[in-house]
Design a protein around this nucleic acid. Structure first.
Lengths: 139, 139
DNA sequence: TTATGTGCAAAACATTTGCAGGAGT
DNA sequence: ACTCCTGCAAATGTTTTGCACATAA
């Protein structure tokens, strides 16, 4: 009977976190794997998954459950929203004020204990949105 | 050289839509498969996936890209938000006014052409939120 | 020393797809 | 008839897991 489980500081964990802090994109586990593998060629994909999961559980990083087929990870842990490009799947931050008030609205509208919310905007990113001829009236 | 592709009315499609209209839950493809299979035992899971995808493309139904591992489907196509139980994964509707104004805020805060947004609340559903002794170790 | 963590490979899931035969129009 | 659609099964893609060995504390 020993004590608990203070997360050990391993090379793998350090480098995963460092790489995640370097980018402003919101890489998938596989993208993190590719980034990390340049510095740690023998790391396993399983290790990347395990550590991303662990770090998101302890709140060191954020696991984004946005649309698309893969989960994405974010080293920016202060609350913020996201946009996802419908065309290419790219995800960026949206820096608008957190809409705290809607939590109370929601709590009144259902039987859940509301703990938080996330807003995901959808649209076309700078690259994908520049179709020349088709100018629809966006308002 | 024939004309285009008006979606055919097949037994499978009718029953999938009927079953989806029957429930207020937000079933996964596999749950729809189970529901439909009671009436159409030989239907294939691939057919269910193909048709759910097709119907969501034409706007007959909604494909929800919420958190969790599976996509969910909803026959209620008028815009509305969702809550997801962090414990059991259940998803319910939240009937609060659509926050149209935040789209403009978001558009100013990024370089995307914003086309829409979705809000997903997280919390504990009526069933999962009532465990007095079992306090989940989140927060 | 010893509980945790890692690499590797296989397993577990969720979803998509190719194809030959079947059904809607 | 002529497509499109379906069932089936295999393929794909993502994430998880079991296990023997390695390593941080």
């Amino acid at each position: 009977m020993q004590e608990h489980n203070p997360m050990r500081i391993t090379t793998q964990r350090q480098i995963i976190l460092e790489e995640l802090l370097k980018v402003t994109s919101h890489p998938t586990a596989n993208e993190v794997y590719d980034m990390v593998r340049k510095r740690l060629p023998r790391i396993g994909l399983g290790t990347v998954y395990r550590n991303l999961e662990l770090m998101s559980e302890t709140g060191m990083i954020l696991k984004l459950e946005v649309g698309g087929t893969q989960k994405r990870f974010d080293a920016t842990v202060t609350p913020h929203y996201h946009v996802r490009c419908m065309e290419c799947g790219r995800v960026d931050d949206i820096k608008i004020p957190i809409q705290d008030d809607i939590n109370e609205l929601a709590a009144e509208a259902c039987h859940y204990q509301i703990l938080g919310h996330h807003i995901e905007f959808t649209g076309l990113c700078g690259d994908c949105g520049k179709s020349p001829q088709q100018k629809t009236s966006i308002n």
